[in-house]
Design a binder for these strands. Sequence first.
DNA 1: GTCTCATATCAAAAATATTTGATGTATTCA
DNA 2: TGAATACATCAAATATTTTTGATATGAGAC
Lengths: 105, 105
Amino acid sequence: MESFEDDAKIFKALCDPKRLAILAQLREGEKCACVLQEPMDLTQSGLSYHMRILCESGIVESRQKGKWTHYRLSEEGGRVTVERLLAILTPDARKGKRLSCCCRK
Amino acid sequence: MESFEDDAKIFKALCDPKRLAILAQLREGEKCACVLQEPMDLTQSGLSYHMRILCESGIVESRQKGKWTHYRLSEEGGRVTVERLLAILTPDARKGKRLSCCCRK
DNA sequence: GTCTCATATCAAAAATATTTGATGTATTCA
DNA sequence: TGAATACATCAAATATTTTTGATATGAGAC
């Protein structure tokens, strides 16, 4: 079972507008860091910081080729992310659910 | 079209372990604030802060009943959240995609 | 009406995340 | 080999989020 911290880390990757803008670029296909940085309001080290968060969440994968780093959406990472989201948001069907009663006292 | 900020706000609700723990409680069904707070390491105002973020994201709905506030997962909010996640993570199938070439210079 | 309870809101403090600029490390190219 | 390029990493500055404690609001009980 995933911990709340592990799940939080996945969704942390998605909660920043700049990272979402980066992901939007990656939907078009694999891109290297310099191409990703070009249209964005980010320094080189700023981009590197965000790419690390995206990669550590599992949502993005990277590949070295010579002096370039190429980034792409991870199929597996996306699958896990959707799976975790559904697990978090799907009501529990178990019997004997506690009611919303506040009159315990 | 959703803005990156709007989407970020949705996922911001999911990127904190305490909020994920609250959502886990709500999977069991509707609960009032005092019931939610009981098992958590949160002050009353701390819970209220997190509930606001969850409600503003659309993922949770609230209902007043006398002096109690009852919270529950929003079916519509969940649907929108999954939809946005898929939109963000699904590769773009458009023709003419830019390649990952770094050799522009 | 007054009292208590459940919750929201506010401002200050504390914690965490992001940005920035400098520096380090490979790698390519001359 | 030495210079330039692409990127990562680090520490300090800045910005944002979360926590805390005090106070406000509104409902029900008395």
